[in-house]
Design a protein around this nucleic acid. Structure first.
Lengths: 248, 248
DNA sequence: CGTTGAGTTGACCATCGTCAACAGGAGTGG
DNA sequence: CCACTCCTGTTGACGATGGTCAACTCAACG
């Protein structure tokens, strides 16, 4: 629940964004049970609330850029965020998409290793670095939770590599749709409808394909009656078939 | 320094390997300063030595398989280890290569997420899981070090994704050679000679290419006088050119 | 000295990228 | 309100990169 709302300037050497802040109330937070915050006991929550601020980002708004000094960590509460890195010549690799419940800032280092941008209007819980690192230093179970999250991130990265290195375009799309479905199920169960908040270009850069190949492959799967293409989403019709494709 | 040598059976539900063990002496360990062990103070080292055993693996020997119950963690002290995952149809993605100083087992979870195999005769420092997790629980600075390593792993995974998703065969090879050089420099400075302990098939499965394309691309780079192909290694001649290719 | 496995090279082909045209929807301004 | 532009997405034609299949060399090893 939003307790307070204002616009504030962050310190000048900070990140590529000015944050609009508001207080938070963990008890009413609908992603608390699936987020890192769950590592803290109920009686520890006030300490978390004390260092957290609810922040909103408009669609396409930059959250931070690669190389920025790390000034904050974020817990995604709604919307979707894309993480990406750029080549000098403009090629872009989308590293992943952050969905509600995901934690952005597992890397406690000095500088950002990638860029983060809101895909659609999104809200996050923002923790300033000094406050949060102090909290982590004080709560070993929070650090353990973060480390477990890091392990899961590494595992997801391996899945991603499997897709990029070994799979055909059709297999990559099938894998992408199924992995999105799995992640969306965990927060809200929309059945076989997979919401695609991101553009075709985002999907292409995530899967190491071109926008044309993504489009063609989606229509191909639709013609084979494996999926149905809907506005901003896809309906999964033949999940078995998609599963076979994704498993190789 | 090896204090004791024997062959021992591990617990039956353990890993796909029988470990030949020996004691360790951290003071004389040549990778200590670049490994996670460096997180411990000199006076804490005896505790580490107490739970560590030096173990050797022959070339092509399996260290553990995907799905195995996690029974140990390893610090690579010599040689090279490949990490990989398999598809049901036999396709293989090599996730990475572990070199001396690398820590194998950042994921403290129940089961292995990938397979590990020695590429060449290798020695490791083995920590059994209960002992090591007890040590980690007792030493927050060790957990922090592990978490920082995990952050670096994630960063390496991102580099790998950039290569798999966006780069051409030539660019991937150039990137691979330079990244190997950077990692080898940190342990022993062999100048512009990059040792290739792994086979062409390993390189191919790491880069998402075929063995033929790897071979062709290496000879192409050699014809362009960017490298020279030597037995089990490569000499980097035109590092600037390789760097341009790798940067995109 | 034969066998085996790793690596190289060539010929051919499929997948996916490139370039281009077009459709439809959202936003903007007259 | 309509016309216009802009942006996203789709589809088609063509070509290049890299995969497939096959032959061959060479070193290691029994």
């Amino acid at each position: 629940m939003i307790l307070d709302s204002s616009v504030a300037q962050t310190a000048s050497d900070g990140e590529s964004c000015v944050y609009r802040k508001a207080g938070v109330d963990c008890d009413s937070c609908h992603v608390r049970t699936i987020s890192v915050c769950d590592a803290l006991r109920p009686d520890e929550r006030p300490q978390l609330e004390g260092v957290a601020q609810r922040t909103r980002f408009a669609a396409k708004e930059t959250i931070f850029l690669e190389g920025d000094r790390t000034g904050s960590f974020f817990n995604i509460t709604s919307g979707a965020v894309r993480l990406y890195r750029l080549f000098r010549d403009g090629r872009r690799q989308v590293i992943g998409f952050m969905l509600p419940g995901d934690f952005l800032g597992l890397d406690l280092g000095e500088r950002r290793g990638f860029c983060a941008e809101a895909v659609e209007p999104s809200t996050v819980c923002r923790f300033s670095k000094p406050h949060f690192t102090a909290l982590v230093a004080d709560k070993p179970h929070l650090l353990q939770k973060l480390h477990r999250r890091a392990g899961r991130q590494i595992s997801l990265a391996h899945d991603h590599m499997m897709a990029l290195g070994q799979r055909s375009a059709k297999e990559r799309i099938a894998w992408f749709l199924l992995s999105l479905r799995d992640r969306q199920k965990s927060s809200s169960s929309t059945g076989a409808i997979v919401k695609l908040a991101m553009s075709r270009q985002d999907i292409a850069d995530f899967l190491g394909l071109t926008i044309e190949t993504v489009s063609r492959t989606l229509t191909l799967l639709a013609r084979e009656n494996a999926i149905a293409i809907l506005p901003k989403s896809v309906r999964l019709i033949d999940e078995r078939r998609l599963g076979q494709l994704a498993a190789g």
